[in-house]
């Protein structure tokens, strides 16, 4: 009886030791791969955000631009306005041709979609009402339906519109200045987009006044 028990304990210990050892063995190369790619992943994300800010401010950058191409353009046009803790509150878009006067703002806003949070960058003119552009940086909507908010036609329609938006119209229908075309089959996503865009028009005037 006791020998059976002992061998069982031994078997347990052997199993546990095996599991721990094998975990270390496999996690080691994985950690190495993570450390190797960490900086690149971070850079990709930062670069993506910078591109989104430029896009929302309607500042053109070459297609397939590398980090080295984006940074000079970004630094020339964009000033990051941070709070005392160092968190970016909003972006000031400067006009370098007229001594750096402000020609707009970009603001990161987010809100619920159908499946999760949608985050977008909204660019506005100095009146804080006229939209210069919209770009979505994070969304997990249904591919082929809600995820189509990333399609060019959808994003481009916002340029020149006046917020806050109070109505969405059907896809391909003409939309007024405070309306935009929703995506067919993605009502909740389109509605979420409307709400998160509208946050810009209430939030931004408040924080830009603080920032002064």
């Amino acid at each position: 009886m006791s020998t059976v028990k002992k061998s069982k304990t031994q078997e347990y210990i052997k199993t546990i030791v095996f599991m721990v050892a094998i975990t270390f063995l496999f996690i080691a190369p994985l950690s190495f791969a993570y450390l190797k790619t960490k900086d690149m992943v971070k850079q990709n994300e930062l670069m993506f955000l910078k591109k989104a800010v430029l896009y929302s401010a309607n500042i053109k950058y070459p297609d397939g631009a590398k980090v080295s191409d984006i940074d000079p353009i970004y630094n020339k046009y964009v000033a990051e306005i941070r709070n005392p803790e160092g968190k970016i509150l909003y972006y000031q878009i400067k006009d370098p041709d007229s001594g750096g006067s402000i020609k707009g703002y970009a603001y990161v806003t987010s809100g619920p979609g159908l499946w999760g949070e949608i985050t977008g960058v909204v660019g506005v003119a100095p009146d804080k009402k006229t939209v210069t552009g919209v770009e979505f940086i994070k969304q997990g909507e249904t591919p082929g339906l809600g995820a189509r908010i990333e399609e060019v036609w959808f994003k481009e329609q916002f340029r020149g519109k006046t917020g806050p938006f109070n109505k969405t119209v059907a896809e391909k229908d003409p939309a007024g200045a405070d309306q935009f075309q929703a995506i067919t089959g993605a009502t909740i996503t389109s509605d979420g987009v409307k709400k998160l865009l509208n946050k810009t028009f209430t939030d931004l005037p408040k924080i830009t006044q603080d920032g002064k």
């Binding site: 994985l30 791969a33 992943v41 990709n44």
Partner: peptide, 14 residues
């Protein structure tokens, strides 16, 4: 999981 995470990391980086 190890192989899948490697695929994920490579895609994220490159």
């Amino acid at each position: 999981a190890v192989y899948v995470i490697i695929v994920d990391l490579v895609l994220k980086a490159y």
